[in-house]
Simulated scan of single mutants.
Amino acid sequence: MNILSLVVQRTRAAINRRRFERELAAILRTPPVVLGKDAFTALSMVHHRDVESYLLAIKSFCRFMHPRRIVMVADPSITDADRSRIASHVIGIEIVRAEDYQEQGVPQGGTWERLMAISEYSQSDYVIQIDADTVTLSEMAEVKKAIAEATSFALATEDGQQLVSCVEAARWAKARADSGEHIQILAEANLDRLPESESARYVRGCSGFSGFAQGSFSRAQLKAFSQTMGSILGARWAAWGTEQFSSNFMVSNSPRACVLPHPKYCHPGREKPGTVFLHFIGYVRFTTGRYARAARETCAALGAT
């Protein structure tokens, strides 16, 4: 990419970001969310910089889903003012500290505290993990079915993804891994070294939107898995990306796990007619004005004043 193209790309992204922030401001003028009666918990980890986008994510989600419990794992950057603002917009929300979900022998940061929290909340309820950079556009029949059937689910990253054996997943990753590759690929390339590799399954999903059936995994299982992978990858196991890999593994090895259909659930670069859920993952977040349009349309639907 030449310098001119890079400048154009960055300028476009900056403009789209400002458009999004302008449209997002209306989320503070929409009615608060109240707890519903659907038999599941909606859980998110939120950073100070993401408070308003979290409100967009959870309010758009609760247009179509009605969790009986909403939990926010507060990053240490969350202030008292942030807590008050969120609590006034999500009535009945439970705000817990990320620090309370740190465990010796398990990486810290990189949303690991979120996965540790899920391991506990999923002991008593179905849990849906929803990122602050997501927008729900329409009814999610597959998600409702997963809850009703106590089936964990993963968010696909491309068409045709399915659960495969760890041996097959490792074979795919080894063909793409090298010494400088992203930690997720390196971890996947070593799935065949797990003691249960012949029977365990894996899908290369995105942890930004995941469903965990009640009792699907425990804190002890997560800690043991982390320690095993740490013994294989050494210091690199502490890198950003290991939580998503671990989340994928926990979902994949839950009974009757499934993968949400793509691109019905996808990131904006793959959106098609009929898409019901968008994850505005970082590298495509502001390449277009779609995030701003989604914010505007959602706030209008919610009755922004």
Rank of each mutant, 00 (worst) to 15 (best):
E103R: 09
L278V: 13
R270T: 13
E120W: 00
S44G: 04
I281M: 13
R49Q: 10
V259E: 10
G160D: 14
D38S: 14
K264M: 15
C206E: 09
D50T: 09
S216C: 08
R293P: 04
A175F: 08
M229G: 04
R85V: 15
F209H: 00
Y101T: 13
E297V: 07
R68K: 15
E103I: 13
E120L: 12
G180H: 12
V51R: 02
Q227S: 05
S77L: 14
K272F: 09
A13N: 03
I118M: 02
V135Y: 02
A220Q: 11
E23R: 08
I232T: 07
S122E: 04
M140S: 08
R68F: 04
E99Y: 04
R296I: 09
Y126V: 03
Q104P: 07
A13R: 05
A238G: 10
S197L: 03
V203T: 04
Q227A: 07
E139M: 11
S197W: 02
M250S: 13
R17Q: 12
S44L: 07
M1C: 10
S216K: 00
I95Q: 11
K223W: 00
F277L: 13
R219A: 09
A295F: 01
P263W: 09
G234Y: 05
L24I: 00
H66P: 02
E21V: 08
A213Y: 00
R270D: 14
L194E: 15
L260F: 09
R18P: 00
R63K: 11
I3F: 12
E149R: 08
A150Q: 13
A39T: 11
G92V: 11
G205R: 01
A300H: 14
F64V: 11
H66T: 11
Y202Q: 02
G208Q: 03
V51D: 01
R12Y: 05
R63F: 07
P107Y: 03
H89K: 15
S197M: 04
A220D: 12
H267W: 06
I232Y: 08
V106F: 03
I58K: 03
G105W: 06
G303F: 01
V203H: 01
A39V: 08
T79P: 10
S44N: 01
L6T: 14
V203L: 06
S88G: 15
I183Q: 14
V135G: 06
E113A: 05
R85T: 15
S254N: 12
T134W: 00
A200K: 04
R293E: 14
H89R: 15
V167H: 01
S179C: 05
A169Q: 03
I185V: 15
R290M: 10
S165A: 11
S207E: 05
R201Y: 08
S88K: 12
A189G: 15
R19V: 09
R97H: 11
Y202V: 05
F217R: 01
I91A: 14
A187M: 15
M116Q: 05
N190D: 15
P268A: 05
V33C: 06
